[in-house]
């Protein structure tokens, strides 16, 4: 009896969670993969097209990937731009705030202020930034400053410009998430033993040297965890673009990212198979990062 329980006991405990995961994650994932091989309108398996959806996405859909012009465009390229600009920037801001706040008396107040945007919904934050960027100087503070301090300057339509819309949304994303990176990095910073820093000081290290040679290397594991989290955020970012870029994903669709394309194709255009193909591509892209994170968690747990 007790041996029986030894066999079944763990399974019994895992069963409810496993069942939920099976029904709500594993099954839909495979269903999506199957759907991605079908064409036509709606969620049905009527028109088998094989890998046509993937071929079209990667070779003949300028909104998704456009290599015909320079610089290349499309949702994939925008996502890469996000990765290259947003990820380092949000970590840099978080690091700077964490290190500087470490030195001052009103540290918790300062960190609270930076963390505040995390407490509001992304859609609300996006609307706030739409006001900031408004081309009407009576509404948008940026254009108000511009037209006041630069004589004869024309207001800039930040979200209406193909070139400015991506950086503009990225700034909003940094504003939202810098609080997260600050708090995590600040906690890690506190974990660095004071003795090490004091020893470095005694050996004559300057402030910047302590930062670059001691604090940064000791923060490296934390920074990489934060980076992976932010990379996953970038790959699935949607809400900011939907609100700030409008239902078209920015002027000419120039602010679209992969997750946005998936939404538009599936629900707006009714091409569920095509949208599923995008979802599968997204899954393949995000998978290595998730594995990396899982591996790291295991390593942490093993330590």
């Amino acid at each position: 009896m007790s041996r029986m329980r030894g066999h079944f006991g763990p399974w019994l405990f895992v069963a409810p969670a496993a069942l939920l995961i099976l029904v709500f994650i594993v099954y839909p994932t495979f269903w999506t993969m199957r759907l991605s091989l079908f064409g036509g309108l709606g969620f049905n398996f009527n028109k088998f097209v094989g890998l046509d959806n993937y071929v079209k996405l990667l070779t003949n859909d300028p909104q998704f990937l456009d290599l015909s012009k320079f610089p290349p465009g499309g949702a994939v390229v925008n996502n890469i731009f996000w990765l290259l600009v947003y990820t380092p920037a949000v970590i840099f801001v978080g690091l700077v705030v964490a290190v500087l706040a470490d030195k001052v008396r009103y540290e918790s107040l300062m960190k609270s202020v930076v963390f505040l945007p995390m407490a509001i919904a992304a859609t609300a934050a996006a609307i706030i930034w739409l006001f900031v960027y408004s081309p009407d100087p009576r509404i948008g503070i940026l254009n108000a400053l511009l037209t006041t301090f630069v004589p004869g300057a024309e207001p800039i339509s930040f979200t209406g410009s193909v070139d400015l819309v991506n950086p503009a949304i990225i700034v909003a994303a940094i504003w939202i998430n810098a609080g997260f990176t600050t708090v995590v990095l600040s906690a890690a910073l506190k974990g660095i033993p004071v003795e090490i820093i004091e020893a470095a000081r005694v050996d004559g290290a300057t402030g910047p040297q302590v930062f670059a040679r001691i604090q940064i290397p000791m923060l490296a594991p934390t920074i990489s965890v934060v980076a992976v989290t932010m990379i996953i955020y970038v790959i699935k970012v949607f809400d900011l673009i939907y609100v700030m870029g409008g239902n078209n994903g920015g002027p000419l669709g120039s602010a679209r990212v992969v997750a946005f394309s998936q939404y538009v194709e599936t629900f707006n255009n009714g091409r569920a198979g095509y949208g599923s193909a995008i979802a599968v591509i997204m899954l393949l892209v995000v998978l290595p990062f998730i594995l990396l994170n899982v591996k790291r968690f295991r390593a942490e747990a093993g330590r």
Binding site: P135, D136, E154, I156, S157, F158, G160, S161, P251, L252
Partner: peptide, 12 residues
């Protein structure tokens, strides 16, 4: 239009 071409595609 207010703001020219950029204004048009930036206004809902």
């Amino acid at each position: 239009f207010p703001g020219g071409a950029q204004g048009i595609v930036g206004t809902a």
